[in-house]
């Protein structure tokens, strides 16, 4: 079945003590789909995203990547091996980039492929060149992160994630920490990925970007998916009152 979802979240729930941050969420993402998750802060959207690679483990529910359960219950040692293998297929981009400051751009990109895929230094360097070309930063290959702008750092972080040839890319507010004039260069890279049919799940505050790029939009609030659908519907004609309220606040000023 080619229609089988690449990411399948089944009845995901998470709570910290009595605080429920995710309440019975199910979500299927098909290959090549681009899904935006929007919602007010504290709605659980980042937690849901971080549950996909088990960075924030769920309290209950299942996460599947194709036919592998990501959050399988295993003894510690086996789980370690399992999750490290699974995570190689799931690229993640963070709000604060999380580039390794002690490594230059080339080594930031090639460290994981070299360590985990056993490729040679020559192959790894070629990989770095390929990925940096993609994000338009080949001339920065020998720079250290401290010498880059925020937008450049985030593009390197994307290149680093792509170098593992992931099946899915997760974006956790990738442009939220950037100065406004640097947002566009990162958005362009993400749009380019969209055109290459990379499967992407994007947590974002940028409604304009979500509208332009995504196939589906989920609006989350208080740990539940309040409404979901194609961007035309969610942004132009939302059915739910909470969605309308949220969008009214967020679309103000953005044409």
């Amino acid at each position: 079945m080619t229609d089988r979802p690449i990411i399948d979240i089944r009845n995901a729930a998470k709570s910290y003590g009595s605080l429920e941050v995710l309440k019975d969420i199910s979500l299927q993402v098909k290959r090549g789909q681009i899904v935006a998750i929007i919602g007010p802060s504290g709605s659980g959207k980042s937690t849901l995203l971080r549950a996909i690679n088990d960075l924030d483990p769920l309290t209950s529910g299942e996460v599947w990547l194709e036919d592998t359960q990501v959050n399988k219950a295993l003894p510690t040692r086996q789980y370690e091996a399992h999750i490290n293998a699974v995570r190689q297929n799931i690229g993640m981009v963070f709000q604060h980039f999380n580039l390794f400051p002690h490594l230059n751009v080339r080594d930031n990109i090639t460290l994981a492929p070299k360590m985990l895929k056993g490729i040679s230094k020559t192959e790894a360097d070629a990989l770095a060149v390929e990925q940096l070309n993609k994000v338009g930063l080949l001339d920065r290959i020998d720079y250290y992160p401290s010498q880059l702008s925020g937008g450049q750092k985030q593009r390197v972080a994307i290149a680093r994630a792509l170098a593992m040839k992931p099946k899915v890319m997760l974006f956790d507010e990738a442009t939220s920490a950037l100065d406004p004039e640097l947002v566009e260069e990162v958005n362009l890279v993400m749009k380019q990925l969209a055109e290459e049919h990379m499967t992407m799940i994007i947590v974002t505050h940028e409604m304009g970007f979500a509208q332009d790029v995504c196939d589906r939009v989920l609006f989350m609030d208080q740990g539940v998916v309040v409404e979901e659908g194609p961007p035309e519907v969610i942004f132009k004609n939302p059915a739910n009152e909470r969605t309308r309220n949220f969008l009214r606040k967020h679309l103000k000023g953005q044409n």
Binding site: L55, E80, N84, Q88, F94, N98, L111, A112, M115, A157
Partner: peptide, 18 residues
Amino acid sequence: VDKGQYEGARTLGLSRMQ
């Protein structure tokens, strides 16, 4: 060391030790 460094490495698939 910032917690994000650990997360950044782990999401690439590196083990704790690595």
